[in-house]
């Protein structure tokens, strides 16, 4: 399918840009890039290990373009270097472990708030000017304009510390060993409630606004008026004629919203001490663990690109005009 193929090529190019930024950034900084990147290692690393790490990041005695190719080669082979703080743990392993938590949290929150927000936005648009519309619209404005840091801290304060209904941190009770047992899974779900609540609060408002705007712009279309003239029930017209079409631009805006979703979940993870990428990154920033900081850009970019691709595919599935007969 040419549309999807074009997207894939574009995503590969975008990934290359992220890698290029990673390559040039330390080299553009004043001073010695090797010194800058691995300074925090101190004397903890043996010369052989340091040499291997330098090779991974393309610090070889060769012209710049060869250094660049060396660096790209390590990325293509899946070598993102080793964490300095947790030496000799490979960056891919460190981030790979964390990304499972982030993806689960982010994925669920995105799906829940997309569904909820789109439904609320559709109903608000349908009953434009009514009490429901005013309540939902104003609520959405509040929810979207408060930074995720603030929402997560306030939710944590109210439900975690003041009311004490839910745990205030970690992904599961530390006393339990990870296993597919009822106790462990239950604990994981229990610990996920507050981060999920935070993320859904932050995200739902945006989807409400997008859906409401898209749908209001569609309500004058002939096919919607005709559906009403056909004597269909309000529910059928609202969901299958208006909302179903308004969903198309909403889905394409989802791709852009994903960046925000990611930012929001990083912050939430830090606040809740959740073992996802956000927290790993927070530790890495404090320790100036540059291989990890660089690795996260590549991994997050790749995650975003995959998510974008999923959005592209669902767009094609939702719009029959893009399907080839």
């Amino acid at each position: 399918m040419p549309f999807l193929l074009r997207r894939v090529l574009f995503y590969l190019a975008a990934f290359l840009v992220a890698a290029t930024i990673n390559f040039f950034l330390p080299r553009l900084m004043p001073g010695d890039p090797v010194q800058l990147m691995f300074a925090s290692a101190g004397n903890a690393m043996s010369p052989e290990n340091l040499q291997a790490l330098k090779l991974t990041f393309g610090f070889v005695d060769a012209p710049l373009w060869q250094q660049y190719l060396t660096y790209l080669q390590s990325i293509v082979t899946g070598d993102l270097g080793r964490s300095i703080k947790y030496f000799p743990l490979p960056v891919t392993e460190l981030l790979g472990r964390a990304i499972v938590w982030t993806a689960a949290l982010m994925g669920t929150a995105t799906i829940v708030s997309f569904a909820l927000g789109s439904l609320l936005g559709a109903i608000a648009a349908w009953r434009r000017g009514g009490l429901f519309d005013v309540t939902v619209s104003v609520g959405a404005i509040f929810a979207t304009s408060v930074p995720a840091v603030v929402t997560s801290l306030v939710v944590l304060f109210v439900f975690g510390f003041t009311l004490g209904w839910f745990p205030s941190g970690y992904a599961a009770a530390p006393s339990l060993d990870p296993a597919f047992s009822a106790a462990y899974v239950g604990s994981v779900l229990y610990h996920a409630v507050l981060p999920m609540l935070t993320l859904c609060t932050v995200l739902t408002g945006g989807f409400v606004v997008t859906m409401r705007n898209n749908m209001i712009n569609l309500l004058g279309e002939d096919y919607i008026v005709m559906a009403q003239a056909k004597g269909l029930s309000d529910r059928r017209v609202m969901l299958w004629y208006a909302a179903r079409n308004a969903l198309l631009p909403t889905v394409s805006s989802l791709a852009i919203a994903l960046g925000m979703v990611l930012g929001g979940s990083l912050v939430t993870e830090v606040v809740y001490n959740y073992p996802g990428l956000g927290n790993v990154l927070y530790q890495a920033i404090i320790a100036r663990d540059y291989p990890v900081i660089q690795g996260q850009l590549l991994i997050m970019t790749a995650t975003m690109l995959v998510a974008n691709f999923i959005v592209d595919v669902s767009y094609v599935l939702l719009d029959p005009r893009l399907k080839r007969a």
């Binding site: 002939d222 096919y223 005709m226 299958w240 179903r244 079409n245 198309l248 939702l318 029959p320 005009r321």
Partner: peptide, 12 residues
Amino acid sequence: FQSAMNSLNPVL
């Protein structure tokens, strides 16, 4: 309705 191109729901 007026517009022949737009009276039918494009996604059904």
